[in-house]
Amino acid sequence: MRKILALAVLLAPAAALAADAGKEAGMTHTETGYFEVRFPAGWQKTEAPFGLSDAEKKVYGAEVSGERDADGLAPKISVRYYAPGNLLHKTAEKFIRTHSRPALGAALDGQKYSSVKRGLAGRQYARVFDRKIFDFTPQESLHPKKIAVYEKFHVVPVKDGFFVLRYSAPAARAKAHLRDYAAVVASFKPLNR
């Protein structure tokens, strides 16, 4: 019961905060030809240049992160456009299925998943869901500590491909940055779609 309440508390403020969230200062990110969005001021982009390029993956966008905590975990917000034929998730439905339920078919570590609801990302209809998953730190150690992580998604299907807005934060700090995520969601604007 306590877990359900905790999830509800995390879910509730996003809509309420969306109205005034856009007033806060931030940094506009334009993914040329795909979307424009306003990230929280002071957050840093966390892209890595090695491996396949965005064009090779056909996934375009950016991720920003706030301060890491003592466990090395940071709140993150990403906005990405998945073009048709991309190498990560062929369809919006597949993305939603992979992230709104246990990706490997079992939630053995106490993960919790909300149902998928309708919502808005900017002026676009979106499929919205959230979840509580776990990180293990130190990773790859014999005795890792289990840390709850809260994540929220807005998936926006369009004629060609789909967009994903994603918020991820250690559960203990998740509520504090929901306002930032709500502002990003409110500022989202697809380009030429």
Binding site: A48, G51, L87, L88, T98, H99, P102, A103, L104, G105, A106, L108, D109, I133, F134, D135, F136, Q139, E140, S141, P144, K146
Partner: peptide, 24 residues
């Protein structure tokens, strides 16, 4: 799913992250 119960939490988490977000 029985397989997932037979490996360590870290290995489970790695496999799930890989399925969700790939090599990145």
């Amino acid at each position: 799913p029985a397989y997932l119960a037979q490996i360590s939490p870290s290995h489970r988490a790695n496999a799930e992250r890989f399925m969700e977000d790939g090599v990145d």
